[in-house]
Amino acid sequence: MKLLIIEDEDSLLRSITDYFTQEDFLCETASTYKEGIQKATDFQYDCIILDVNLPGGSGLALLEYLRKHKKADGVIIISARDSLGDKIAGLDLGADDYLTKPFHLSELYSRVKALLRRKYASSSSVIEFDKLKLDLLLKTVSYSGQPLLLTKNEYELLLFLLTNKNRVVSKQAIAEHIYGEQTDNLASFDFVYSHIKNLKRKLKEKGGDDLLQTVYGLGYKLSV
């Protein structure tokens, strides 16, 4: 998968690149409006991660330019501006998703994956990992062929972990993913913890003992 990351903050750009490279993405980067436009028009990308505030021009203008020139690459806007107006403006211009800074890399990754899944809908709607199978269309989960009955939250949680498989996903990222980013819900870690506990129990019942691991109280990881 080819990814173009347009972000002027060098440090953040490196973080994103690191994260996606580890997931076998081919990452190209641009840090100005001009560079961004050049790369985006010259090459074809599966997804473009686009910052709004760029030196030399707005990311939104860049997006408008791309859509005008019939470039259909998936675009995820990352912005420090989180007003509803900005979000709507971005989505109206043809962005596929909008993420407000600061975000978790795991969240960005899951958004990119979701975008790619939507974009290439022809491919299988089933995500498999070890003996775990998750059907995105039917929203069902099974382990070694035995169905797992999950609540909506547990399903969302499992999908999030599955997308970021073999990686530690922080409990903060999970909380934000499930409960949304706007509310000041630091108390929701307790709820994350209880979802994880339930999920672990349900997996254990079907024989998936160590599939879901807790990493030093920092977060959780789905790995074999």
């Binding site: 580890q22 420090a80 600061p102 975000f103 978790h104 890399l105 530690v168 922080s170 990493v215």
Partner: peptide
């Protein structure tokens, strides 16, 4: 927002370091 985003992204990377010990994790 931007420095916060940088710290957050670095933390996301750090917790995935294989060399992480329990002490540094805490």
């Amino acid at each position: 927002q931007t420095p916060l985003a940088i710290i957050r992204s670095k933390l996301d990377l750090l917790i995935n370091e294989p060399s992480l010990t329990e002490k540094s994790a805490s």
